[in-house]
Computed example of a mutant assay.
Amino acid sequence: MNIELSGKRAVVTGSSSGIGLAIATGLAASGAQTIVNGRKQDAVDNAIERIKAGVPGANVRGVACDLGTLEGVTAFVEQVPEADILVNNLGFFGPGDILSTADAEWERYFQVNVMSGVRMTRAYLDGMMRRHWGRIVFISSESGLAIPPDMLAYGFTKTAQLSISRGVAKFAANSGVTVNAVLPGPTLSEGALDMVAESAKAQGKTPDQVLNEFVTNTRGSSIIRRAATTEEVANMVIYVCSQQASATTGAALKVEGGIVDTIA
């Protein structure tokens, strides 16, 4: 299958590293004019260099804004007033159960993981519908279905993204705009590898080994028995953003190696 996105403008939030960077790289490789986003200019500049190194001739630019705030979204949209493809990837994760997560942390999870996608979708959806073509993708998680009690606020936001993506898909019915959610599981991203780096060092192992063992030990239903790569997650997102995926909308598409033990 040849995915061709030349002439399309793609925005990927939180794309200076990890899954977001892999998605931005894949979109650029498919010909899309790709806008990279991160909070810090040096991280955005580094991501652009990495994309251009892997995709010679890539049409890519960067906008450094904190999209976890209304002010940041407003500043971003002023610089990028239109988009054909929006990937709401921005998000963060960390430990925290019902007793240990304070109100301020709940609010931060909500603003960054949920409201960033709401605001960015609101900014670009109308233009997509008027042009009768568009792709919006929310990067949710298997944690939105199999809620982790030790990462409760994170899991809550990922469930919220599933509700929002489904509702927006219905709102955009018969417009040529598709809206979907993609659900990764444990992934070999910079963030996840950094989280286990100290433990890996203490065990005399690589972060990759520790993360793969984490999947085996704590996600017994995993079928692939390992963490996914960022490129494997990005492959699903690129397809959903393609012309070929025009009949896929309102879907929750799993890329978690079979962890969620259901056939639906």
Rank of each mutant, 00 (worst) to 15 (best):
M1H: 12
N2P: 14
I3M: 13
E4I: 14
E4T: 14
E4D: 15
K8W: 08
R9W: 09
R9L: 15
R9K: 15
A10W: 03
T13A: 11
S16Y: 05
G18P: 04
I19G: 00
I19N: 02
A22F: 06
I23S: 03
I23A: 01
S30P: 07
D42L: 12
V44C: 05
R50L: 14
I51F: 02
V60P: 00
R61N: 12
L67W: 06
T69A: 11
E71G: 12
T74I: 09
A75H: 08
E78Y: 08
E78V: 09
P81T: 08
A83S: 05
D84M: 01
L90A: 15
I98H: 13
L99T: 14
S100D: 12
T101G: 09
T101F: 11
A104H: 10
R108P: 06
Y109P: 06
F110A: 14
Q111A: 15
S116L: 04
R119A: 02
A123L: 05
A123V: 00
G127R: 01
M128L: 04
M128W: 02
R130W: 06
R130T: 11
G134I: 01
G134S: 05
S141C: 13
G144R: 07
A146Q: 13
P148F: 06
D150V: 10
A153T: 07
G155I: 04
K158Q: 09
S165V: 04
S165C: 09
A172G: 04
A173D: 09
G176K: 03
V177G: 02
L183G: 00
P184A: 08
G185W: 01
E190V: 10
A192R: 15
A200Q: 07
K201N: 11
A202R: 15
Q203A: 15
D208P: 05
E213Y: 03
N217D: 15
T218H: 14
T218K: 14
S222E: 01
R225E: 07
R226K: 11
T229L: 08
E231C: 08
V233D: 02
V233A: 03
V237F: 00
Y239V: 02
Q243N: 14
Q244D: 12
A245Q: 03
A245C: 05
S246Y: 07
A247M: 15
T249H: 04
K254M: 15
V255L: 05
I259R: 04
V260Q: 07
D261N: 12
T262P: 00
